[in-house]
């Protein structure tokens, strides 16, 4: 009897060994965890770094009222330096706003055409082309703004300077449009074909299918695309620096030159003494930019969640 038993009962002791697969699985789990956590750590690290550099300024010279309401950004004044960021904030906001006015119709139109109308080779060619456009370096866009748009605006509108909100806004809009198109097109593509078929079977015309069914179904992705464009607008530096005129100004029309938050940091940081008030003030601008981008992303997230819940 006792000799038969071991043969009929499988030896689980042997089966239960940790083999190579088990160790690989554990190792991959750890790697993925480290990767995920490090992304968060880096962001926190960046925030801590910027805050630390700007902190001395925030606690001493910083005057919230001046920062947000005064357009006088004169950090290099020898006797009475002032740190009013209003003109820079308005500059960034006006350029971004105009850029979105340009980019949203272009990118949504392109996404709808590529996603809903174009077929076969046309569609593939357009997708490659749009992705190629997204890869153009920003300094090239700035170059176009400086050397092509500038004389064009002067000639067309008969204004003395062509480096202004209009120039930077159009350039930034064209820059943001390709990536917005790609994201918007992806979200249109994610709408199940069954929705389109169902609407078509109800006698909906192609426009009705798109406006009543496809766009509402894809609105999460479309909102994400637009907010990504806004984020790009706030963060873009080189093209805005080159095309906006880079002069501190509260614009009253789109033909006024402005200066952007990002461009200010890029242009001035290299010329300041590390640890000086000016240096720290620039980091304060950095904190402000960081907070705006964070808020935009948070809003995007909440909007998307809100839509999902409903």
């Amino acid at each position: 009897m006792s000799r038969v038993t071991p043969a009929s009962i499988p030896d689980t002791q042997v089966m239960d060994r940790r083999n190579l697969d088990w160790y690989v699985d554990k190792a991959v789990q750890v790697l993925v965890f480290v990767g995920g956590v490090s992304a968060i750590l880096f962001i926190i690290g960046i925030f801590v770094f910027i805050t630390k550099e700007g902190f001395g300024f925030l606690t001493t010279t910083f005057d919230a009222q001046e920062f947000f309401t005064s357009p006088r950004w004169r950090p290099t004044s020898e006797h009475n330096p002032t740190y009013g960021a209003l003109a820079l904030i308005v500059g960034t906001a006006s350029v971004t706003g105009l850029a979105m006015l340009v980019a949203v119709p272009f990118s949504l139109g392109a996404a709808i055409y590529i996603g809903e109308f174009a077929t076969g080779k046309t569609r593939e060619a357009l997708k490659v082309l749009v992705e190629l456009l997204a890869a153009i370096p920003s300094v090239v866009w700035g170059f176009i703004g400086l050397s092509m748009m500038n004389p064009l605006i002067i000639k067309l509108f008969n204004v003395p300077v062509g480096l202004n909100v209009l120039n930077a806004g159009v350039i930034l809009g064209l820059m943001a449009a390709p990536i917005m198109t790609t994201i918007a097109e992806d979200s249109l593509k994610a709408v199940p074909d069954g929705y389109r078929e169902a609407a078509e079977a109800l006698g909906a015309t192609r426009w009705q299918v798109i406006f009543k069914v496809v766009l509402p179904a894809a609105k999460n992705g479309l909102v994400a695309a637009v907010l990504l464009g806004v984020g790009r607008g706030f963060g873009e530096t080189m093209a805005v620096l080159m095309a906006s005129g880079h002069s501190i100004n509260l614009p009253t029309s789109i033909f006024d030159s402005v200066r952007a938050l990002t461009a200010t940091i890029a242009a001035e940081l290299g010329e300041t003494a590390v640890g000086s008030d000016h240096y720290r003030a620039l980091f304060t601008l950095g904190i402000f930019l960081f907070l705006i981008t964070f808020l935009i992303n948070l809003t995007a997230d909440l909007v998307v969640r809100g839509i999902r819940k409903k």
Partner: peptide, 17 residues
């Protein structure tokens, strides 16, 4: 579209828009 409005269609998989 006018033709399709006279014809109702029910697909294999339920499509709740």
């Amino acid at each position: 579209y006018a033709l399709r409005r006279r014809i109702g269609v029910v697909f294999p998989l339920p499509v709740g828009l």
